[in-house]
Computed example of a mutant assay.
Amino acid sequence: MNLFERLYDEQENVKVQFIGFTTDDVRYDFGIVYTNMFFGKPLVICMQTGRSALLCADDVSNVDHIQKVFHIQSAKEAEDLATFFEKTLPTMPLEPQY
């Protein structure tokens, strides 16, 4: 009897970008994993907190989501981070997921 039903088990060579930057108030260190999994959305990992999210440039227009995902205290910091991601992350074509 199997306890787990494996949904996927893929191996892939991926591009990883590490970016450290500062705003007027905060330092950030992120790893961005560009993969074909997850409909091509990059996996964005905060290297300071370990929090991560699948994001593309289209997702960062929702500043509240960025603030919630990365547990950012101020709206200004979230807006600064959203602006950075908007310029850094790729846009994704609209495709049905299933």
Rank of each mutant, 00 (worst) to 15 (best):
R51N: 07
D58Q: 11
Q11G: 04
V26E: 02
E12H: 06
Q73H: 13
E86R: 11
V63K: 03
L7E: 04
E95Q: 12
E95P: 10
G20L: 01
I72P: 01
R6Q: 11
G40H: 09
N36K: 13
T49V: 03
N13E: 15
F21A: 05
E5W: 12
F70H: 14
I32E: 14
Q11H: 10
N2I: 00
L3Q: 04
F38M: 02
C46Q: 04
V63L: 12
D29N: 03
D9A: 10
T49W: 07
V63D: 06
E79Y: 03
T22S: 11
S61G: 15
D29P: 07
Q97G: 07
A75E: 13
F21T: 04
A82M: 03
M47V: 02
Y34P: 11
M1D: 02
R6A: 05
L94R: 14
F4A: 14
T35P: 09
M47T: 00
Q48E: 03
P93T: 09
E86F: 09
R51P: 05
T91Y: 09
T88G: 02
P93M: 13
S74Y: 14
D25W: 15
I19A: 14
F85I: 05
T49S: 14
K68E: 12
M1Q: 10
G31V: 02
D25K: 03
R51T: 03
L43R: 11
T83Y: 07
S61L: 15
D80L: 04
L89N: 09
F18C: 04
R51H: 05
L81P: 07
Q11P: 01
Q11Y: 05
C56Y: 00
V60N: 06
E12R: 10
L54Y: 15
R51W: 00
T22Y: 03
